[in-house]
Amino acid sequence: MKYTEDHEWLRVDGDVVVVGITEHASTQLGDVVFVELPEPETQVATGDEICVIESVKAASDIVAPVDGEIVEVNDALVDNPGLVNEDPMGEAWFFKMKVEDMSQLDALMDEDAYNDMID
């Protein structure tokens, strides 16, 4: 598992990378009430704002953590945004990316580094 400063997690699953938001982020957001996902087959670059997530408190963006192509999105979140609070690190993944250059992940934080950051 890798982590970004924007509180996203990345899990490598075969030749795709699964992306979601961390437990810490979901707690900070509070109850999530709206999720907007990108279109599959979209090419994205690191830092592109590709998802919108709204909680009872505020709206925020989720950015592409690395360069790549969106290959699948989790439509279950659109119908049930509360899943982001219930299981942020598992069921509530946001999208899957095909990443040409997997070495991009090397620059991201591991779990210990992420935990140090949020402490």
């Binding site: 509070g30 109850d31 009430v33 009872v56 408190k57 509360g82």
Partner: peptide, 9 residues
């Protein structure tokens, strides 16, 4: 307090 531990919802 914006919310207590139970949360807004």
């Amino acid at each position: 307090p914006v919310q207590y531990p139970a949360g807004v919802m």
